[in-house]
């Protein structure tokens, strides 16, 4: 158990504290939830804008990461796993990006999330950028996959903040389906 993180004196508080996690991926190894949990590394928790920049400025950009890895930013207390109580009824929007676009897209996404630009109450759980060899994948996780008004609003905000070409394909996947077929994308 960690001590709760709070904004420092004079800092600009965020609506929610968020935690960065990092997962190096090893191609070919079966990703069971057990080894996923063992493999995921806690990076740090931020409760203010200043704390966010302090971490973010020292972290590698998704576009600079090589091989397979995932960078997660989730509300503090929510693990970036399908099985977490906040996630198990939820799902995610998936956006596939060609190489070279991930760093900017990731920054735009997490600034929108930290700034509460999605306007969907408590529905946002977190965001992930997955670095792969051929492409990068960005996803936004929410609590209630069956809430269509919310998922539509998240999709529209995501389109706006990522500023992607109109033909970009966005796919919604329920975590229950990910659990069933044991695949993330």
């Amino acid at each position: 158990e960690r001590e709760p993180v709070t904004p420092g004196p004079g800092e600009h508080a965020l609506q929610f504290a968020y935690t960065f996690w990092f997962t190096p991926r090893f191609p070919g190894r079966q990703a069971s939830s057990l080894n996923f949990e063992q493999n995921i590394k806690y990076v740090g928790t931020v409760a203010s804008v200043e704390q966010f920049w302090a971490y973010y400025s020292h972290m590698g950009r998704p576009g600079d990461l090589t091989g397979h890895s995932d960078l997660h930013l989730f509300k503090d207390g929510v693990k970036p796993m399908w099985e977490d109580p906040a996630n198990k009824e939820g799902g995610k929007w998936i956006v596939r990006l060609r190489k070279g676009l991930a760093s900017r897209a990731w920054e735009n996404l997490i600034l929108a999330m930290l700034g509460e630009q999605f306007m969907v109450g408590e529905e946002i759980c977190g965001a992930v950028v997955s670095v792969r060899f051929q492409e990068d994948i960005i996803s936004v996780w929410n609590k209630t996959a069956s809430d269509q008004a919310t998922t539509s609003r998240i999709r529209d905000t995501l389109k706006r903040v990522l500023n992607l070409p109109p033909n970009t394909i966005m796919e919604y996947k329920m975590h229950l389906d990910s659990l069933k077929d044991n695949s993330s994308f």
């Binding site: 420092g8 200043e50 700034g115 630009q117």
Partner: peptide
């Protein structure tokens, strides 16, 4: 309660705040 909302440019402005360690 009131939500704490930041526009992108507001967050970017705070990037170089002296409080950012």
């Amino acid at each position: 309660g009131t939500r704490i909302i930041y526009e992108r440019h507001e967050l970017l402005q705070l990037r170089n705040s002296p409080l950012t360690r």
